[in-house]
Design a protein around this nucleic acid. Structure first.
Lengths: 249, 249
DNA sequence: GCATAACTATAACAAATGTTTCAATGTCGG
DNA sequence: CCGACATTGAAACATTTGTTATAGTTATGC
């Protein structure tokens, strides 16, 4: 895990772009963001950034790659509770209270910026930035609720369809889509641990979506061929993301 | 829905008790809490306190009864994302951002205190109170994650067992338990909408827990007869609640 | 205190999802 | 370019959970 030269290039990218979607940021806010990082690491896939029981401080920002929050059962079963995609900042203020009750790990190679506690306080002293971070946190919580809906009341195919729609909106917000397609660099096993199924059933269900002409997957590239039908089948209503509705173009 | 005489008796009870578990409160904090309520209502079961799409402000506190956060599918299927039990305060700051992306409704008759936006700002200007509310909010988010684990990676029986353990800890924190029993005034249908199953399967699974001698239900009263085994089967680790471990007495 | 509705319990059957296994394909370091 | 290893695809069968139906039981309004 090598520490790359800082300078804030990482934070100025997707993180800035994401927060701009939630709050009108000034030049000075962007500059503060760029200054705050305490070093950017390139972390290989399958690495824990934080373990359950750690007592972390400050913040982490993902600027490249996919990471996730997860917990394990004693038998090794894993449940993913959240994806951290480029632009996502995760507050480690759990330390206000106690120790991490879940782990954060990479699903792919990730570029990760660390923000020290002092720097994180500086950021929050800028009202526009604080507002952006606060709103992002509220949306993260709304996503947790929607995932509960997904797990509790949607079928296997619907769960996957819903997840793909959500990721389209989130990836678009950081400029990582092209039309209705984006890179989804994770395995079917990861998808299974996200949607509470087995990888076998994920495979079945993906095949179903593919045969229905709703999605296409070439390597890591996922294309939502018929977004309108996909959204309809998943009853995807993006209001919980507090961004614009994707046009079904 | 009649508005009862205020005076803060409601807020001084379970809400105060809950927050004291998270932060050392002074007399003045308790007084501020008692003063803040803008009226307490007695709300019948099955009533929405807030609907999806509303633009609410201020805070709500439940001082008696069970309420929940929920969403509906178009076919009428309901998923409950959180229980609001006595002492729980729910921040309506979603208004910072936009409209409610879920509804809040009563599961039983509830006593509900409303805290106006100005009063809520007053509360937050008291550091100890602000800390207590913040920690309570962090725990609420941790509960959402644990519920995702529950839905995704536990069997029907385990899900119920885990929920009952969680509620024991939360009810104990507001003094509503007696040994390992407490009032769980909700129906099997509510439990089904919580755990992502059908009421038939909830009934089957409750029977299984009962026959195994793990729980007993007399009317609304739930007793966890063998807490140690119940915790073990559900792999219940209460760290995410950030309170003391219940002794398996 | 009765009539009604809501809730609990249970059965028989259907559908969805999990388990195990194996082959085909892709990826990556030397 | 090869070999090892991870990933995808898929079949056969097992298990869990959902569906529909019906009867008993408890709460509730009048």
């Amino acid at each position: 895990m090598k520490v790359l030269p800082g300078g804030g290039a990482a934070m100025s990218g997707p993180v800035l772009r994401k927060l701009q979607g939630f709050s009108r940021l000034e030049e000075a806010d962007a500059a503060a963001l760029a200054m705050c990082e305490a070093g950017t690491r390139l972390v290989p896939a399958g690495t824990d950034l934080i373990r359950e029981g750690d007592r972390p401080e400050g913040m982490l920002a993902i600027t490249e790659g996919f990471a996730c929050r997860y917990k394990l059962r004693e038998n090794g079963a894993r449940q993913i509770m959240a994806y951290l995609i480029p632009g996502d900042v995760c507050d480690l203020d759990i330390s206000v209270l106690n120790r991490m009750d879940h782990a954060i790990g990479t699903l792919t190679t990730c570029r990760v910026a660390r923000i020290a506690p002092e720097a994180s306080r500086d950021l929050r002293s800028r009202p526009a930035l604080a507002r952006g971070l606060h709103r992002a946190a509220i949306v993260d919580e709304a996503i947790l609720r929607e995932w509960i809906m997904n797990l509790g009341r949607r079928s296997a195919v619907e769960r996957l369809a819903h997840l793909f729609c959500e990721l389209l909106v989130r990836m678009r917000a950081v400029g990582l889509t092209c039309g209705n397609s984006y890179d989804l660099p994770i395995t079917q096993l990861d998808l299974a641990d996200t949607t509470g199924m087995t990888s076998v059933h994920v495979n079945r269900s993906l095949g179903e979506l593919r045969r229905a002409g709703l999605i296409e997957r070439k390597g890591k590239r996922l294309t939502l061929c018929d977004l309108a039908r996909l959204m309809e089948m998943a009853e995807f209503r993006p209001n919980y993301l507090h961004r614009e509705m994707p046009t079904a173009a």
